[in-house]
Computed example of a mutant assay.
Amino acid sequence: MKTLGYYNGKFGELDEMTVPMNDRVCWFGDGVYDAGPARNYKIFAIDEHIDRFFNSARLLDMKMPVTKQELKDLLQEMVNKMDTGNLFVYYQLTRGTGIRNHVFTEGPGNLWIMLKPAEISDGMKPIKLISTEDTRFFHCNIKTLNLIPSVMAAEKAKKAGADETVFYRPGGRVTECAHSNCHIIKDGKLITAPTDNLILPGIARAHLIRMCKKLEIPVSETPYTLDEMYNADEVLVTSSSNLCLHANELDGRPVGGKAPELLEKIRAALIDEFTEATAI
């Protein structure tokens, strides 16, 4: 299979799959999702992603149609069907199917899965960032399907010739990026926004923090501002699709480049962790 989709027990190539018009995702974007990479037919950090997926559903009072182990087995079964083992593995739960009504549809939700070929960046090439005010709601810790602000921010970055958009709240506090977490290094310390309701608790973020502690690099989970990002020694961007990227430009201004040895130490360690975990 070149791509593979799943919807409530039905499998097929993505362009052959259909869903009911009355799935609540069509009317309300009523759902949650999670995703991560696979390499050599091995899904990376699968337990962490599934735990977050189930937590997102719990926070929105959604009913899973499967157990964690059943979902884990299903995802691996689908990965094994693919022509390549290097993949982006995506899954989402929508609240159910029924005539449009704001109140919840009763019963378990609908499970969607999507697989497509993908490669993890080695993080060697620097990226360009722009910033924009964070006008999203106050439940960013839940990985919902309501992604219009992120879609608009991603398009803004594309039109500006940048790779990602940094969100900031009134007062200049940096929260995260349109589809990534962001962090800074200053004076030998990693500084990353706390996991409150303004950011998604990224799996790659958690691996970054753990790796820094393993490498005896101090970590501070405290708010920081856009001005501090402009003046940081290094600017890091992490996601499940790109484990450790770094930026050399923000809003047309050069950033980072002041702690290359420390940056490389972190990047290499995270890529090695992924490579070892997904080795044949």
Rank of each mutant, 00 (worst) to 15 (best):
I120M: 14
I142E: 04
G202C: 08
N197A: 11
N55G: 02
S220I: 14
C182N: 15
N242V: 04
H179R: 12
H179D: 09
K68F: 11
K81H: 09
S150C: 07
F11A: 09
A160I: 09
K81S: 08
G252N: 04
F28P: 07
N80F: 01
K186A: 06
A247E: 06
D83F: 09
M152T: 09
A206Q: 14
L111F: 11
I46R: 07
A279S: 14
W112M: 14
S240Q: 02
L200R: 06
L147V: 11
A232I: 02
F274Q: 02
G123W: 09
G256P: 04
V174T: 07
P201N: 13
K258Q: 13
P20Q: 15
K156V: 02
R210W: 13
D34G: 01
K258V: 07
R24V: 03
R267T: 13
P260R: 07
A268N: 15
K265E: 07
R52P: 02
D61H: 15
A35G: 14
L4M: 12
Q76N: 07
E13R: 11
L115A: 05
I99G: 03
E261T: 10
T84D: 08
N146E: 13
C140F: 12
R136C: 00
G123P: 02
S150Y: 00
P260A: 01
P149Q: 08
T222W: 10
C212I: 14
D51S: 15
F54Y: 15
L200T: 06
G188T: 07
H246T: 11
E106P: 14
R210K: 05
N86I: 00
T144K: 00
Y41H: 13
L236F: 10
P126N: 07
G96H: 04
A204V: 04
L245H: 00
L147C: 11
F11D: 05
M82A: 09
E264S: 03
V79P: 00
A279W: 07
N248H: 11
E234K: 01
F274E: 10
E261H: 01
K128G: 08
G9W: 03
G202R: 04
V66A: 01
N86L: 00
R136N: 09
L75F: 04
G98I: 06
H179N: 14
I43C: 02
F53L: 13
S240Y: 00
G12H: 00
K213Q: 15
D51E: 14
M152Q: 12
N197C: 15
S239Q: 12
N55L: 05
L226Q: 03
